[in-house]
Amino acid sequence: MPCSHTISSHTNISEADNRALRFRLQNEITWLSRQMEDLQGADESRDLSLIQTYREMIFSRRALLGRIPR
Rank of each mutant, 00 (worst) to 15 (best):
Q52T: 12
L64W: 00
Q40V: 12
L48K: 14
S33W: 00
R19H: 09
L39V: 05
L21V: 10
R22A: 05
M57Y: 03
I68L: 06
R46P: 07
D47Y: 03
G66D: 06
A63M: 10
E37W: 03
Q35R: 13
N18Q: 13
A42H: 08
D43I: 07
A63P: 01
Q52F: 06
Q40A: 12
R55T: 14
Y54A: 05
L64T: 11
D38H: 12
Q35I: 01
R62I: 06
Y54E: 06
S60A: 14
A16K: 15
M1G: 08
D47Q: 07
E56P: 03
Q40N: 00
F59I: 13
Q26V: 11
T11K: 09
E15P: 00
S33Q: 08
M57K: 15
N18T: 04
S9E: 15
N18S: 08
I68G: 01
I29V: 15
L25P: 03
S49R: 11
E28Q: 13
I58M: 03
E56A: 01
R46Q: 13
E56I: 01
Q35P: 05
S33L: 00
E44S: 06
R70A: 13
F59G: 05
R24H: 09
I13F: 12
D38W: 00
R70Y: 11
F59C: 05
R55K: 15
D43L: 13
T11A: 07
L64N: 07
